[in-house]
Design a protein around this nucleic acid. Sequence first.
DNA 1: GTCATAAATGTTATGTTATAACATCTATTC
DNA 2: GAATAGATGTTATAACATAACATTTATGAC
Lengths: 183, 183
Amino acid sequence: MLCYNIYSGDTIALPMRFFMPRASAVSADFPQRGHDHSACGSHALLEAEAVCRSRQVKLTDLRRKVLETIWEDHAPMGAYDILAKLNAEGERNAPMAVYRALDFLIENGLVHRLSSLNAYIGCRHPGRSHSGQFLICSQCNIVAEITSEAVSKTVARAATSRGFKPSGEIVEVMGLCPHCRGN
Amino acid sequence: MLCYNIYSGDTIALPMRFFMPRASAVSADFPQRGHDHSACGSHALLEAEAVCRSRQVKLTDLRRKVLETIWEDHAPMGAYDILAKLNAEGERNAPMAVYRALDFLIENGLVHRLSSLNAYIGCRHPGRSHSGQFLICSQCNIVAEITSEAVSKTVARAATSRGFKPSGEIVEVMGLCPHCRGN
DNA sequence: GTCATAAATGTTATGTTATAACATCTATTC
DNA sequence: GAATAGATGTTATAACATAACATTTATGAC
Ligand SMILES: [Zn+2]
Ligand SMILES: [Zn+2]
Ligand SMILES: [Zn+2]
Ligand SMILES: [Zn+2]
């Protein structure tokens, strides 16, 4: 049967015996409403620790707090939103502090920047160096980060066939997530 | 033979009798150095007139001047750069004027915004409603707008296979243009 | 330990991009 | 020539991001 890889999302030929219901694939990219989101955050923090250890860079207090703040939501967050949350309890951080932490987190593949929104979101498979592809729900603002080989290969091919040597790419798709689409 | 469509850039099977040398395809997307660029601008203005006539919208003086300014270069231009050029000869336009003109031009498919640069560029095939794909040279800042069916289809498929209903997309590729790559 | 160095953070100021809100002008229609 | 919609003018401010330099903190050499 024709199916798709739940990690890459690409359509592939798959023997029937490997069939899995579609819902599981969808939830792999778009979080279920009402899921235990604190688990997403603590999982991300654990991964971040590991990444930083292996890269020999320091996940300092400030950087960790910024990352935790970003992971408070599956929707992307502006730098000044992050700042406001950090300072909600009396701290007096300046914008620079946030931007510097974001630079660090982005450099180390723990956070992505969404250029179409001027906003930041936690990376869902950190460590690997990658420029993700993003599905952005215009209604509920949830963002799914996907990693489609088909997309990156097709984009690379389109570029190179025009004599262009690609070194990075941005793919951001606006639309409706599975939940909002159903309404 | 396997070849590619010089308009869409996609690889296609093409009978040998249709073969054309590659250079012509490359130059279709990336302008030659030293080409008569004033022709690009005047051609774009003529097309813009036609588009506005057929859409029954008005290409006013201000909007035309903004469009002309954008077409002074194949590199994208920031809104405040445009403003500075408009005001270079004593006029006193405010940022709002530029942004409103840009909104109009974008709505009517005459200009694109590059989110990764916060900059604007003239559309090379206006009239058709489309969200182009862009190849951005990190060295000389020239931008090629391409329209690859393969890319848009692959992106759409990756999105829909995840239960997402796409309504718009941004594809921006950073790298080296044919000229800068050669250096 | 302490000294030198590099890394991180603090602090202040400023630069850059974009929009809100309301007033005025101009074209179009009846 | 009034009524209306569309375009522009004007002022102020919001939202996003970086420059420059001072201070603190971690790290390794001695
Ligand atoms: Zn979650
Ligand atoms: Zn949604
Ligand atoms: Zn030209
Ligand atoms: Zn170049």
